[in-house]
Amino acid sequence: MMKRIWPIATAVMMDSLRRKVVYVVLGFAALLVLAIPSLPDYGLGVESAVFREVALALSYVTGLVVVLSLAANRVPAELEKRTVYNVLAKGVSRWEYLVGTWLGILGVMAGAIVAFTAIEMVVGYFTYGELMWRLWEGALATWFEMGVVSAFAVAVSSVTGPVVVVTAALAALFIGHSRSTLLGGEGAMALRPFYPSLDAFNVVNPVAHGSGVPLVYMLSMVVVFVGFAGACLSVGVLLLSRRDL
């Protein structure tokens, strides 16, 4: 099984590394990180917290742009150009193809987020003289959330084109972070456990202003990540398996 999934994931990663969009987005975001310390009106003693908060936000947006640019078009392009024929004819299952594609995107995201967080660490150290290790907790949370977003995008992309994928992914993100807004009323409280909330990955406060993310919470994030990504990929596999290529 992994014999077939791994080459697909590797191919996705190698292909992504050749795409200029990844480097352009990362480069632009890195410039913004360099510019964070120049933001005016920091309160005394909170400069580094503001830096961490803005850095996390930049990581998130950068990750989102990269993940959508990779995930939205990958499967539709392979189906349209029929490069997928050669893959599936080799005895690769559709689920192996989809999971391999997702893992490849996840790998690229890991590389991009690690690189980006390292830049933030360096800038933070030279600006505030502080090694901001907690940024890695935020990076992990961002990576988990982008993993879910990419699983959703890959699933939707198995039956539709990039524009719909991007729109659907952004809508899912909005819904995923709007539980308290949409279910805030007492009448809807009973629905909270069923709401597909992505708030579990929001660790801005403990990373930027608190004392970090507890280990137990980290483990619960893993469970949420596996659950959501697994559910999205399962739906994607079901959709793709019913499709005539």
């Binding site: 191919a11 292909d15 050749r18 080799k90």
Partner: peptide
């Protein structure tokens, strides 16, 4: 089974050798 689709397409950023390695590893 070996299959040649009508008008085969490949990931164009690979070299011929890389493409063969990719399909070879998929085919076991």
């Amino acid at each position: 089974v070996g299959f040649l689709p009508e008008q085969p397409y490949f990931p164009v950023n690979l070299t011929a050798r890389q493409a063969m390695r990719f399909y070879g590893s998929l085919g076991g």
